[in-house]
Design a protein around this nucleic acid. Structure first.
Lengths: 183, 183
DNA sequence: CCCTATCTGTAGCGATCACTATGAATTGAG
DNA sequence: CTCAATTCATAGTGATCGCTACAGATAGGG
């Protein structure tokens, strides 16, 4: 028994929701704005995604998955230092990319602390590997360096949202790299 | 011609408003929450402070003045590196002080970008003095290092808001200091 | 005393918030 | 075809938003 088919593409609508949450944040992105951006009426939105919380959950999860791909790509660099350099560089460019909202949803949204914790874990793991690989000194404390990097990227996101240029955010990344000890 | 005297202390009420804006942010701090925290009815609030925007303007300005005192105190250290170290340390402790809301209003609130710019200017000036004083190498670019420090402190504020401990935020400060070149 | 000026609390303004009741429209199954 | 199932758009729900009209209360100047 099939009913009337959905008149919109769920993935496309979710992408529009991600874009709006990213640009405006969870609180300021109202249902009215979301329905307009997604090209969907409120009842359709609630039928397809549940309530606003669950829509945000799904949107932020998909956003996080995409972010993790970039993190993994950077982590694949041969040395931990190169991995960190690439992550900082790509982060700076992504945060000021004019094709997307400024900054980073995961690093900005207050309610996404758990995602930031996962990011912190991944960074700490890559740094730990760098220590065991010998391309970082044994004195490095992975948890501390990971916390520092999350803080810096968060600051880069805020700088981008304040209107900082790509060069300005890249300069932050470059300065941060100086805090990563060499072997 | 004097009328009925005000039944509340304006400074005390403003202090309560600062506390609430600090804890909840501009958007989430509603007039209802503000009036309750300030111990004042809505008409009294509007008569004494104008609208919500002007109340926030006044509250954030007073907050900023207090912050600048701490910045000046740190900048008074004999060398730029010591000044930065003290600023990072006091920032980490302030952001996790249990007597006040977590994090920093100036570094968190989106609409306070101009205050952050002033902070950036002050940092750049102190760093420039450090270069001319010779306690920082001539290769240092003050604007860049200042941007980096603002970004780090912003990240520290976010970490504190996410529930990070004083030790965790202090660790970020310590790691950041490694990015400040020695003469 | 009266008059004016200012502050007070109550009560409610229109706008917007997240969310939904309702019934028409569109599908496949029988 | 009819029927059940599902989605659709309209139009609204009560709650909260920032803000204010109003009238009673409290002061000083005459």
């Amino acid at each position: 028994m099939a009913g009337r088919p959905r008149s919109f593409d769920r993935d496309t609508a979710l992408a529009a929701a991600i874009e709006l949450f990213w640009r405006a944040g969870y609180e300021k992105a109202s249902i009215a704005m979301l329905t307009q951006a997604m090209g969907v009426t409120p009842p359709s939105l609630y039928a397809a995604f549940g309530d606003k919380d669950r829509l945000f959950e799904e949107a932020s999860t998909r956003y996080f998955e995409r972010t993790c791909e970039a993190v993994d790509a950077a982590a694949a660099e041969p040395t931990a230092r190169q991995a960190i350099a690439r992550m900082l560089d790509s982060t700076a460019r992504a945060h000021t990319d004019t094709d997307t909202p400024l900054g980073c949803l995961m690093l900005t949204e207050p309610r996404l602390a758990s995602q930031r914790e996962v990011l912190h874990e991944r960074l700490a793991r890559r740094i730990t590997r760098g220590v065991t690989d010998g391309d970082l000194p044994a004195s490095v404390r992975p948890e501390q360096l990971a916390s520092f990097l999350v803080a810096v990227m968060r600051g880069m996101s805020g700088c981008a949202r304040d209107g900082g240029t790509t060069d300005e955010v890249l300069a932050i990344a470059e300065a941060a790299l100086a805090a990563v000890p060499q072997p």
